[in-house]
């Protein structure tokens, strides 16, 4: 399982005259790697994830999955290779949490019996500590609970490549730690993870590799410690970021010039 980007160019909204988000990006992601996708708001993190999911054709360059362009993959075969977890969910109709997870299983595993699908769905909910809400209407859940159900859904799909759009944005610390644990195990078992994150400390502990977008077309990528450096982050985010190294760990914080 490997994903290769070759001279990728992405504009905002995928339009030819859109603002340039990624000018020219080439990299490959391999099994066992956990990539964090960093960048200021509107830098194109979601757009990149959407493009890698196959939903948006790149403006130039190519995205190769197992050496084959994304557009050449039939939908269902692609669904067995990559799972995409969007940032927002809109649930217009009443549906229970386990049924939401079961969608992915029904779609890709018609061979499973209905009870087997339900059991599997409940299992994935328990993996993200939401099995106690399995029979609850998803529209009544808190943001963090809904997010964990979305993560369970993405994992249940069973595709080795996970594309997660800010999966930790609503999670409390304990569930951020749970997410980290799950994603580390996912990659240890041969999966690949690409996740957009805003919390730099979480990003550092989670990642093996990082891709930092500056929102102007530029991108830095590579092993975590090469990319997650104070000067690079400061440049990308436009604020002074200070970094502290302690016991082989890195801690980031905003270096305010005039703290209140």
């Amino acid at each position: 399982m490997s994903l290769r980007l070759e001279n990728l160019r992405l504009n905002a909204g995928g339009k030819p005259d859109g603002r340039s988000l990624i000018a020219d990006l080439s990299l490959s992601m391999n099994p066992g790697e956990r990539w964090v996708l960093l960048g200021p708001n509107g830098a194109g993190k979601s757009t990149l994830l959407v493009a890698l999911a196959g939903l948006l054709p790149p403006n130039a360059g190519s995205i190769l999955l197992h050496g084959k362009p994304l557009a050449g993959w039939p939908g269902e075969a692609l669904a067995r290779q990559r799972a995409w977890c969007p940032q927002f969910w809109l649930d217009p109709f009443p549906v229970s949490a386990w049924e939401t997870v079961a969608c992915a299983l029904f779609a890709l595993h018609p061979e499973h019996s209905a009870p087997a699908v339900e059991a599997l769905a409940r299992h994935w909910l328990s993996e993200f500590d939401v099995d106690h809400l399995a029979d609850t209407d998803v529209r009544m859940l808190s943001g963090g609970e809904r997010q964990r159900i979305a993560l369970a859904t993405a994992c249940a799909q069973g595709a080795p490549l996970l594309l997660l759009d800010e999966p930790s944005s609503h999670l409390d610390w304990s569930h951020q730690a749970l997410l980290q644990e799950r994603l580390k195990r996912w990659s240890a078992d041969g999966g690949t993870v690409l996740t957009a994150v805003h919390d730099l400390n979480l990003a550092w502990t989670l990642a093996t590799h990082a891709l930092l977008l500056d929102g102007l077309g530029g991108a830095v990528h590579g092993p975590r410690d090469d990319v997650l450096q104070a000067d690079r982050l400061s440049a990308a985010f436009g604020i002074p970021v200070s970094m502290r190294e302690e016991n082989d760990a890195r801690w980031f914080r905003v270096a305010l010039e005039n703290p209140l």
Partner: peptide
């Protein structure tokens, strides 16, 4: 209980893991 599919090691091993925290 687990995934019947053999071509997906991540899931299989994942299923064997226990929830480590956040149970309280």
């Amino acid at each position: 209980m687990g995934s019947e599919r053999s071509d997906n090691p991540p899931i299989k091993k994942f299923l064997a893991t226990k929830r480590p925290l956040a149970n309280n």
